[in-house]
Design a protein around this nucleic acid. Sequence first.
RNA 1: GCCCCCUUCGUCUAGUGGCCCAGGACGUCGGAUUCUCAGUCCGAAAACAGGGGUUCGACUCCCCUAGGGGGUACCA
Length: 523
Amino acid sequence: MTIRTRFAPSPTGYLHIGGVRTALYNWLFARKHGGQFILRIDDTDRQRNVEEALRPILDGLRWLGIDWDEGPEVGGPLGPYYQSQRVDRYRDAVERLVASGGAYYDYAAAEEIQAERAEAERQKRTFRYSRRFMAETVADRRRFEAEGRRAVVRLKMPGEGKLIIDDAIRGRVEFDWANEQDHVVQRADGSFLYHLANVVDDRDFQITHVIRAEEHLSNTPRQAFIIETLGYERPAYAHLPFVAEPGSHTKLSKRKLNKYLKDRDFAELLERGRKIAARIGHPLEADAFNPVIVDFYRSVGFLPEAIVNYLALLGWALDDKTEHFSRPELIAAFSLARVNKAPASFDPRKLMAFQERHFHALSPERKVELVVPFLEKAGLVQSPPSNERKKYIENVTAAAGDRIKVAGDILDSDDFFQADDRLEYDEKAVEKNLGKEEALELLTKLRDRLATFEPFTPDALEAMLREFVETERIKIGQLIHPLRVALTGKSIGFGLFDTLAILGRERCLRRIERALAAAGKTS
RNA sequence: GCCCCCUUCGUCUAGUGGCCCAGGACGUCGGAUUCUCAGUCCGAAAACAGGGGUUCGACUCCCCUAGGGGGUACCA
């Protein structure tokens, strides 16, 4: 039998990091076993704007390389893949449920159920519906309806015995049927509830392995009951622990951004993103721009393979040492048996570490490709850049080296892309490094040397500068720092000899000239 | 309340009765390198929730307690 797994997002407009992990594990499991991964849309509640609300989710999954064999946009033989279009199937199932005695029409009003529940609570006993308004015959139905009552359809749970689930992650889990309620499967308005739809769809789509979040573990009995009553075969189950908040075991939620901001690492991550987003005109509204949402990472230049690698290890491990996985390695190594039972908390710092590792391993050409869109959006290079310009970008990127951790970090080196006469100077840096008369004198002397020095390469420039400071009887730092500020406007940046060489003689001279003039004016 | 699940360094984890006075990674702290920053290198601190069993021997098996999480909806 071919293995088939599924992920069933609701069209909320966001792809949650926890959801991604669930999708990823489903995907990995299917790929590992040469099976299929199906995407089904859980839109029972929303009729409007489904496409729009789905867009970020589909885009996010594709960006991460989690592709689906059947589902929206790709179709498939077992469609439709939207629950809102499958109500006939649900109606059918409910009819069969009732016909087989596994479910009944119930005419109790919501308040009447509520009252029974309250009474049970008062008596400190487990609530079970009395079935007082259960209609067993057509005559019953007519009578209740004559009273103006409307029916829901409830499951007629066994009430005794045990259900045993053999969960791929948790092992054997037992439930007492006596603890299970007569859950509603069809509302008074005729619409269907999730558990019913879920079971029917899993069956229709021939899902063999249900891999989902642990919040569904307690719901499994009622689904198992429907499955059994309908005569379906029960799929294998694997209940994944939550992705939890940083430093806690509570489920990660996109709504608690303010709380997470108290976590230093989380705040730093968001800050890094905001800095980049502001430069490229990406909307910053808190809702979508949030490290709990995948879109955040895409928009600031994270690598999908880094996110996937990190998420794969968040709750799963191959052994005691392997951390870095390419996608094929991940597929080969993955197994449900090695998924952890306990919730794993999301660690922004560690995510960053994976990102750095993957990014640094990239070829120079690839880095340029990734970095260019950010320069374009920030208006620092023309779109598309010329080949010559690309070469220049590559030089800057190479010199920046490990300082670029996500593609958007290229904007920290904006000084290399600004026109010489438009370069902005950091006030403090100028004050500190270009405030003294000696510094200006040194720069003046150096400018004259630079004007004719050949060749203008990092090594040659370094030799020249070292010799220069020796004759001036100063430490190299005394020259380098003022020079850096003059050239880049900043006190931090990458290797100074690289900086000189990348900018080239003309631009260096112009920038030094301009800095001297500016410093002279202010002092 | 009832039911279910979970519990190894701050975090992610390895560990399936002796290889563990518990290993790796991120982070932290020290030190080295250096023109700033980033990095790199070296080193250190840091955990089996608690209590009972079982066993010659428990991180590993059983029970209890505590803590955390989930479910208990005409939500998904």
